[in-house]
């Protein structure tokens, strides 16, 4: 999956097997989520206020195989949104897999709570538009999204469309070089997960060491109670 291969080649041959591997990895991680216990140190949902930290990011993204640009803002308003970045070949246990685990736990919690149905969405934006094509995103989305808990998998036309979104969110991301000075497919990035309210304000940010799904679920509850 080298950087130099034509995009069409990738689009034609890679999606199915590639996506299946990724899906297998995160299905295996579901077992871990079953062991999540509430952290008693954190307050109950609705007993605290989440401040408005910054506006949600803007930009243009692609969602499905038709390659039609869509405004990212249409995925970050009117619902409470859990938003993060990932890429399909990411294997750093402190990176994307950790985000997958958290998103799976939140997705399950939303599905199990009828009061939350269609009030919460999850959004993943790919860090690797070269490899993570819209076709690939469609496979992820059809496997993961449900009507009561929509989960959008987005990508961009190219890294030049992605970079402003990353800058808006203060997420540094860098492609590693190998020993011979060639770029690899490893993208180092600081894992950040953003909780966005329905007015498109970021209300909480979770980083690698502090991404506790139970805390995220409590924060979602706080935002939904705030709406009531």
């Amino acid at each position: 999956m080298g950087m130099g291969k034509p995009l069409a080649w990738r689009s034609r041959y890679l999606p199915n097997g590639y996506a299946l591997l990724v899906l297998l990895a995160f299905f295996l991680s579901i077992a871990n989520n079953q062991r999540c216990l509430a952290n008693p140190a954190y307050p109950e949902a609705g007993t605290y206020k989440l401040q408005k930290i910054q506006p949600a990011p803007s930009g243009w993204v692609l969602q499905d195989s038709v390659w039609i640009p869509r405004r990212l803002s249409s995925y970050t308003k009117d619902k409470v949104t859990l938003f993060s970045f990932f890429y399909g070949t990411c294997r750093d246990p402190q990176g994307c897999p950790k985000a997958w685990d958290a998103f799976l736990a939140v997705h399950k919690a939303v599905k199990m709570n009828p009061k939350w149905h269609n009030k919460v969405r999850l959004v993943f934006v790919s860090l690797d538009p070269n490899a993570d094509t819209p076709e690939m995103m469609s496979i992820f989305q059809s496997s993961m999204s449900t009507p009561e808990a929509p989960w959008a998998f987005l990508t961009t036309w190219s890294e030049s469309f992605l970079t402003p979104i990353l800058n808006d969110m203060y997420v540094p991301a860098w492609r590693e070089f190998d020993d011979k000075g060639k770029q690899t497919d490893v993208i180092n990035h600081l894992l950040k997960v953003f909780l966005i309210d329905k007015e498109a304000w970021v209300r909480e940010i979770y980083t690698t060491n502090f991404l506790d799904p139970n805390v995220v679920i409590a924060d979602i509850g706080t935002l939904l109670l705030e709406e009531e």
Partner: peptide, 9 residues
């Protein structure tokens, strides 16, 4: 700095 390339560059 480690040798790496910022995305988009």
């Amino acid at each position: 700095p480690t040798k790496a390339a910022a995305l988009g560059e």
